Simulated scan of single mutants.
Amino acid sequence: MSDKKLILLLKSCIALGLCLIALGIYLHNFSQAMEAMGVTGIIISAVCVAVGMALSLPTKMYLTFILVRRESESSSK
């Protein structure tokens, strides 16, 4: 997989993760349906936030590593 495709995939994972985090916050704070569900609603919103963080945080670190490596390779040439 080329670097451009990998970077695009990682940025997509970051965007999906941030959207899931925002969805979890929305469900927890503003959704009446989740409030009516009780503990199950809390678990659903918590899972959205957890999966979003799992997608976004490690991806950001790896993307930063790739970009720093590419910058060091281009500056050494």
Rank of each mutant, 00 (worst) to 15 (best):
K4R: 15
L23K: 05
A15N: 06
C48L: 12
A54L: 09
A54P: 02
G38T: 02
A36I: 06
S2H: 07
I25M: 12
K11S: 11
L20I: 01
A46Q: 14
P58W: 11
H28N: 09
I7W: 05
S31I: 01
A15L: 12
G17M: 01
S56L: 12
G41T: 06
F65D: 02
K5S: 05
M61I: 14
M37G: 06
G52W: 00
K77Q: 14
T59R: 01
C48V: 01
L8N: 00
K77G: 09
V47E: 04
M34Y: 08
L27V: 00
E73D: 11
I7D: 03
D3E: 10
L57H: 07
C48A: 15
S56C: 15
I21P: 00
H28K: 11
A46D: 15
S2N: 14
L63A: 03
T64G: 13
V68C: 06
L8T: 03
G38K: 06
V49T: 13
S45L: 00
I25C: 04
S56K: 05
I25V: 15
M61G: 08
A22V: 12
D3C: 00
F65S: 05
G38H: 03
E71D: 07
L8C: 01
I14G: 00
K5G: 00
I21K: 03
E35N: 14
K4E: 15
M34T: 12
I7K: 09
M34C: 05
E73R: 15
S45I: 01
A46W: 13
V39N: 09
I7C: 04
L18T: 04
G38R: 03
L9S: 07
L6H: 06
L63P: 02
S74A: 15
G52P: 05
C19F: 00
